[in-house]
Design a protein around this nucleic acid. Sequence first.
DNA 1: CCACAATATTTACGCGTGTAAAAGGGAGGA
DNA 2: TCCTCCCTTTTACACGCGTAAATATTGTGG
Lengths: 337, 337
Amino acid sequence: MEELSVAIGVSRPTLSRFFQDPTLVKANTVERIERGLTQVEYVPNFFATRLNRKSTGMIGVIIPYLNDLFFTKLLQSVEEAAMRAGLTVITQCSHSDPAIEARAAETFMSMNVDGALVAPLGDHSDQAVQLRLKSRLPFVLMDSRPTTMPNVDFVGTNHIQSTGLMTEYLCRVGEPPAFLAMPRVNFNALEREAAYIAQMEKLGFEPEVLGTESVSDSAHFEEHGEAILDAEFAHGRLTDRSILCVNDRVAIGAIRAAARHGLTPGRGAKGGLRIAGHDDYPLCPYLNPALTTVAQNTDAIGKKAVSRLLQMIRGEVSGDTPEITLFDGELKLRESA
Amino acid sequence: MEELSVAIGVSRPTLSRFFQDPTLVKANTVERIERGLTQVEYVPNFFATRLNRKSTGMIGVIIPYLNDLFFTKLLQSVEEAAMRAGLTVITQCSHSDPAIEARAAETFMSMNVDGALVAPLGDHSDQAVQLRLKSRLPFVLMDSRPTTMPNVDFVGTNHIQSTGLMTEYLCRVGEPPAFLAMPRVNFNALEREAAYIAQMEKLGFEPEVLGTESVSDSAHFEEHGEAILDAEFAHGRLTDRSILCVNDRVAIGAIRAAARHGLTPGRGAKGGLRIAGHDDYPLCPYLNPALTTVAQNTDAIGKKAVSRLLQMIRGEVSGDTPEITLFDGELKLRESA
DNA sequence: CCACAATATTTACGCGTGTAAAAGGGAGGA
DNA sequence: TCCTCCCTTTTACACGCGTAAATATTGTGG
């Protein structure tokens, strides 16, 4: 930058100001600088520019999984909103490992990011690290909220509403549903299960939760759903029931199990097999049968999380009262229920 | 760091060395420092540490899409390999926009990353930017290789082999396949199409490519596959043929179209409908019917790309002879073909 | 106990830029 | 014409740390 400035015939600080905002420099000088820039290819050093700046213009985002289209959708929404606000997004995936998540948080702190957006590992995030992150910089939780961190800004889905909605629908058009859960609990899964139970009781039905014990090596959602229902169907159970799965990936496994037993879940006469999911995974419309589910408004969640973070960064918030934003789920009626 | 060092009673450079590698400091001193660190919470500044270092210990990765499990699988493999090598990964998604991709490349250059791993936008990457990136730092292309950039290190799949394998299989067990392509060409798609045609001719069959014209608003792979086959099936065409789809996401749409027309693709007597894909998308085993496909060895691709980049970073390569590594595809026989 | 080597620490400087304060320059009014 | 005011540019210093060279310390053998 030094050399470039002498070559152009201005002082280095003037060049510096030009790169930050050309309007800070006289039009005449701007023109000279731009002419000089066409001669040499110059890229300002990223680290040097952020070293002595009050704001780095970056936000950190942590997501728990990469191989899950729900989180990639959320991430896309976040990146778009951040880009619109002129922020650089640094994404880190914790790969379902609390240690990696913690390291990502450390990285963000050492980078002086302006704020952090975190979708935590459901059940076993290192909360000490997150609290330290929160105490140091604007911090918004997305998707899943540990019950032990009530005083944190959060953006997610209203699972009471979304699961209640689906439960009510299933009760209305068919047999009262059973709930297919996951053993590796996360807070969302627990909320959905609780919401299911509450809604069932409110409607006067007996709740029935299955899949809470781990079968075989069901590290993956789909495998788990398939394994549980395969066992049930093999004993002739649940073949004429409604089954509400804790999420779409479990439902995908459930549908697969049904197919293997010659069952075709679907909207039909009362007393038929129905399978429903939760989240509106992008591939749901292409399944056989197309999966009936509740859509999470990932787009709204991402946008809101970024805008809330921006408020905090700009100091436009009172500070002591965290904001909890829950978006409603939307019923997606397709073929499977 | 200054304050901390006086508080502990060592000079700042000693502290600096401690953070880089504690073995560079005497055991006695290490202990004193660690004792001091428990008192204060101190995180070294990310930017300052990289500003005057020869190596930043970071590599940049660009992927074209986030909402595609193929790329997230690849990214996961890359991240794992990089982590094992002690590298920090900076991921940027180009969101199928050449301008964003170009900006990501600029960011990497300004960050002085040690190297860059790029999965380009198939057909319309800004090659000038990529060439500039390549001329500035170790650079390895992944997944898709522009025909106009022959002299670049590349790691990907041998589509001649993989597509040839599947084509041969389909010819052997059923009707010679038609090829369901995509209008928004990328280089891999073109290679696969060419490989299909070559293999068909070698086996003495007439190649037949469809789906090269865009129907409706088929921005998405699945939609496209469904739309094309929906139209064909509606006219009673292709209902007893084998159909090789350019990738699994198109195949997912194809299977959906078959279901809508009451057709069940599968391995059966000669003369039945068969649908096959390419890539081994993670959800393939859970489709109805489970999708027969060719697996790309994403794990090997990611690992190899990182190790090759490391070689280049360490200067262990001759430099003038780029290495092209192609991994074979593996047939995944399931139900649909 | 001393000389010498080997290791540990410190001194001194630099990395590439941002920013506040000081200096410069040009337009408008008296 | 001169002076003031405002905008632009420059001067001077800072950001937080890495690193080579210089110095201090420790360990070893005689």
